[in-house]
Design a protein around this nucleic acid. Structure first.
Lengths: 190, 190
DNA sequence: CTAAAAACTTGAACTACTTCAAGAAATACA
DNA sequence: TGTATTTCTTGAAGTAGTTCAAGTTTTTAG
């Protein structure tokens, strides 16, 4: 039933059979339809989402009214607004399904109780967060050092399948250039 | 002796007296002189640094040969390359003391053993990493949505003291514009 | 299957920055 | 304290991108 998340957790830590049972009993999968939101700007984020299947994104609406994607999440990724989650502050972000997706949504109160019952899960979430932060640092490096065309080519080389999977304008904003410029890069008109 | 780190840890979790003793016995403060490096590009990073006093930064050298600061760390912050740390891969970053700094350097092997002996520390490092990731997301948001001048003013409002504390060219690169443009912003010549 | 919505393309005009080069000012430390 | 080094400033020229607007193609969903 929850093989995806249990397998992911067990890549990083060992779980006892009793712990697996406990987890199973706390988790449930829900489907988020394409374009539906699980978080809107201004709300307090008190849920973490594990993506079992599909694709989600975190985005903002910039002062010109254009959406800009900050983060994509696919199978086996967690997505949430950690700052809003920890500080109980209003979120600056939207989190939306890019494709109709199956996610495991865990409320903060539920997760905190699970973490008390299965303390070894702390290590799992520590490693997940540390790796995510490391990836964010690399992302900033690429944004700082590469031209728009270099960022596109680099991304395409690293994630060739993913480029087909999301609308170009979302990927353009994730790579920090305009949808129009993406068109020109792809057409070789730069 | 290690009040700074013990106080910081105890903001997030409870420690037993015996655990405090154990930690005390494992930690030692070392001084990093201004401009000295604790990590160079190409090395594998297997140490985490807790800044007791001073200021460190993580930076890269871009293709034009200019340094670009990705991250500053001051008192009560951790600094490391988490990706290199977890994956045993060569680092893309330099980590350097901006001011002569007192740090607690914890080797991965030592930390792993401490985490086994004091499992509740997992929670501490989880929260630290989750907050750091949240802050990185906000940083990307600011880079995406604000002009150079807006980023400078925003940073100056949030961290008025820090602006005085580091060379302007380092702050300029952290905010992703050139040192020359920083000069013009400050002179009101934009 | 078809209408409506979403996504993509193109060119022209524009602009927020960068780069370069050289001098001035501030700071570190022998 | 003095000198070397580091940091900051300024203007001129250049450019990697944006914005706008309008048309075209593709995809979605009833």
């Amino acid at each position: 039933m929850h093989d995806a998340i249990l397998n992911h957790i067990q890549k990083f830590i060992h779980l006892e059979p009793s712990e697996i049972d406990l987890l199973e009993s706390c988790l449930s999968i829900s489907q988020i339809k394409r374009k539906d939101h699980v978080l809107q700007e201004g709300q307090v984020c008190n849920t973490m989402y594990f993506i079992v299947k599909g694709c989600m994104r975190q985005y903002i609406i910039n002062p010109r009214g254009t959406e800009q994607t900050l983060q994509f999440g696919v199978e086996n990724w967690w997505i949430t607004d950690y700052l809003s989650y920890h500080n109980h502050t209003q979120s600056h972000f939207y989190i939306q399904a890019v494709e109709t997706s199956d996610v495991i949504a865990i409320e903060k109160s539920v997760l905190e109780s699970i973490l008390i019952q299965i303390p070894s899960l702390e290590k799992y979430f520590r490693i997940v967060a540390q790796k995510a932060f490391g990836a964010a640092q690399m992302r900033i490096k690429f944004l700082f050092t590469m031209s728009a065309e270099e960022r596109y080519n680099h991304f395409k080389n690293q994630q060739p399948d993913f480029v087909q999977r999301v609308p170009q304008y979302m990927l353009a904003s994730y790579l920090d250039f305009s949808a129009e410029f993406m068109s020109k890069i792809r057409a070789g008109k730069v």
